[in-house]
Computed example of a mutant assay.
Amino acid sequence: MYEIQTREFKIQSDKSHSIFDDFKRHGFFINHSCLSGRCGNCKAKVIKGESQLVVPEIGLTEIEREHKFILTCVRRATSDMILDLDVLKDVTLEQVRTVPTKISTSTKLSEHVIKLVIRLPPGVDFKFLPGQYVNFIRGSIKRSYSIGGVEGDNKLVFYIKRYLKGVMSKYLFEEAKENDLLRIEGPLGSFFLRRDSLRTILFLAVGTGIAPILAILKSPLNRELLRDRTVFLFQGGRVESDLIGLNYFRSSTIHYYPTLSRVRRDGFYFGHIQKTLLDQDIDLSQSTVYACGSTEMIEDSKSILFKRGLKPNQFHADAFVESN
């Protein structure tokens, strides 16, 4: 048996479980998303001890490796360890389960994006924290999609981008029909609003990365907390049609910065959302950042914002990674 230690508590481990699973078995959840070594959310800094790598840590940069960071989802402890990491506190995560659903509607929003609405079985209460995701399961294929919101009492909304050669994409964009059976597994992930004391919330989203942020902003569960904060949204796309929810955000009370990277248009900022954010006079020391979208945007945002005074524990991300 082995022990994994943090600065606050000690738990037992053995070689058959990942570090992430060791914490989970004892009721402690590490920040996470993909759980496959790709997104980098579950990283921890090794203060002392050794671990064994199970699959490659794609989600780590060379600088992070040099500074002794590891990804807890793809490593097993091989000795006593002391780790510096964030553990979710005062949060109740719903039990992950698999539920049969049916496709209700599929609406084409642009050439590469659809709005998919799926219907839960009567009487099934599928609870989740706004911002979390589920896995779609069809036969042997499993792919992850963020929940973009709810419709009525038993429908979940998703905003899905088409990927070339994507197996699930081909089905959803070319073959899916109303009432098709589609199983979902979830809820999953730790991308949701934190109940911290910082007064400013910054949302960063590109493409369909806006989906979990839409769920967060529209949820009645977050209404009181958001009302007491100053909220900024920096949404990016190549062209105007990429900006899902544009009219909704423009009519809301949040500080909204729609940004285009391919064309210049009146009423829009131009370039990358990271640059748009830095051009504003925002006190990052009093801000919590939630970023969702491409890995490139998230890594660049972290690098830029940390240099400007944002602390690592004030940055939460959900990186969209391609499966094939």
Results as ranks from 00 to 15, higher is better:
E3G: 04
I4L: 09
I4C: 06
E8Y: 15
K15F: 11
D21Q: 11
D22F: 00
F23E: 05
S33Q: 11
L35V: 01
G37F: 02
G37V: 05
G40R: 07
A44V: 03
I58A: 13
L60R: 04
I63C: 00
S79F: 00
I82V: 15
I82F: 13
D84C: 03
P100L: 09
E111F: 09
K115S: 08
L116Q: 02
L120V: 02
G123H: 06
F126R: 01
G131N: 05
Q132W: 02
N135V: 01
I137H: 11
S140E: 15
G149A: 05
Y159M: 11
K161Q: 14
K161D: 11
Y163E: 14
K165W: 10
K177S: 10
N179S: 12
R183T: 11
L188Y: 05
R195D: 15
R195K: 15
S197G: 11
S197T: 14
L198P: 03
A205W: 01
I210Y: 04
L217F: 06
N222H: 13
R223M: 07
E224I: 06
S241F: 10
S251G: 12
I254M: 05
I254T: 02
T259E: 05
V263N: 10
G267P: 07
Y269A: 12
F270Q: 11
H272S: 12
Q280T: 08
Q280F: 03
Q280S: 06
A291P: 04
M297L: 15
M297A: 02
A317S: 15
